[in-house]
Amino acid sequence: MKCSLLIKIHFMLNVIVFSACSLRQYHFVNRSMSWAEAQRYCRENHTDLTPVNNTTDLQNIINTVNRQTVWIGLHKMNNITWKWSLGDQAFYIGNQSPYRDWGNGQPDNGEKDDCVFMEKDGKWHDARCTDGISFICYNGSSKTFILEHEHKTWHDAQSYCREKHTDLARVTNNNENDQMKELIKPNQNAWIGLFRDSSDQTVSQICTKVEVSQHRSWIDNDCNRTLPFVCHNDKLILFRENVTWTGALEHCRRNQMDLVCVESEEIQRGVMNVMKDASTSEVWLGLRHSCVVGIWFWVSGETMCYQNWAEGNGTGEEDCRDGGRAAAIQTGPDRTWISLPGTRKLDFICSKIP
């Protein structure tokens, strides 16, 4: 099953783009504003200025704005901190994300040393993002690290990893650092996904625009310049209600939503991110088993094109007693799906319907 893309035009001012396999609705606002004005507009009318976390986000923006230059939700502040390109908190457990393994005297915080590479000894060094070196990607599906020997700038390496895998590699513990160290050859350096960004949300210095052309360029720009922009709405909401599967479905639909359909790895990651505050050890999904025809199907009416079952679940004959069977995602480290009686009372995740 391929996910279809729908476009709706509103009075020639806003274009809404959404995908059945996307976590966001995108809203192109064809009004020229400064970056701060655009951010305020998006926060008042939607969720925020849109982030661009992967090639799917970028492609949706390209489909929306059609060769225009627009503001996106990336800006640089006075107070600088180091962040991972793969910033999705669903990939981190406990205090993993602050892990660092700097080399001697690093980072030296040179004026333009905003990106980080790893040496053969596993130590990290800051450097100019425009340097061309090898790089290490992370693949979330196989949970593996891949060394790419071709020399690229940090941003080109990031784009490559997001297109071919998941993202530039992030390092959360010594074991992962050692795995990557073993990939690097003598006298070789490799980009990882750490970069210097801002933590102070008060004073912006540089804002980012996207020039939607053949080159799809991201360009730093004066935040006071006025441009059209792209807002987004988040689609997933966790409800800590402890209800049956049918009760969860009814709650979502009473509020013009639906139980979430996890039809791609991207949505799986989104679900993993929002369920971290759940009060139950499992959370209902919009996946139900039909005892009549013996298959699992989403409340959207689609059969599964993506699945993440725990071993022994979802593939055998199901027990049709006790209200039938429905799928829930486990909130533990594995975040896999399990088959449960529909009468079990759990938290649940609704997805906003465009």
Rank of each mutant, 00 (worst) to 15 (best):
I206S: 14
P228A: 15
W191D: 04
W82K: 02
G323M: 08
M180W: 04
T246G: 11
S32M: 13
V203W: 10
N308Y: 11
H155A: 09
A169S: 07
D131L: 14
A90I: 01
E250M: 15
R288I: 13
A127C: 02
N308V: 07
I206H: 10
E111I: 13
I62T: 06
S142W: 06
G316A: 15
D277L: 10
L249Y: 15
Q96Y: 02
M12N: 15
E211S: 14
N109A: 06
G316C: 07
R288A: 13
T130R: 12
I16E: 15
L183F: 14
I237K: 15
R225F: 04
V29A: 05
R40Y: 13
D126F: 07
T208Q: 10
W154R: 05
W298R: 01
V29W: 04
T331F: 00
T246Y: 12
L74A: 11
C137W: 03
I349H: 03
G94C: 13
N45K: 14
C252E: 10
W298K: 08
M12T: 06
A190T: 01
N273M: 14
R325P: 03
T64W: 09
R128S: 12
S22N: 03
G140K: 07
W124Q: 05
L86G: 05
I80C: 09
E150W: 01
S22A: 01
G332P: 08
I267N: 02
D113V: 04
D48N: 09
V271S: 05
H27T: 03
L287K: 01
N95T: 14
A326R: 02
G132M: 12
N242P: 06
I329D: 01
G132E: 12
A327R: 00
Q188D: 06
C223S: 08
C320H: 11
V116T: 10
S199Y: 14
C21P: 02
D178V: 04
W154I: 06
E241C: 06
G286Q: 01
F11D: 15
F348A: 02
N63Q: 08
Q307A: 09
N78T: 14
W124V: 07
F117N: 04
R31C: 10
R100G: 05
V292H: 06
S300F: 13
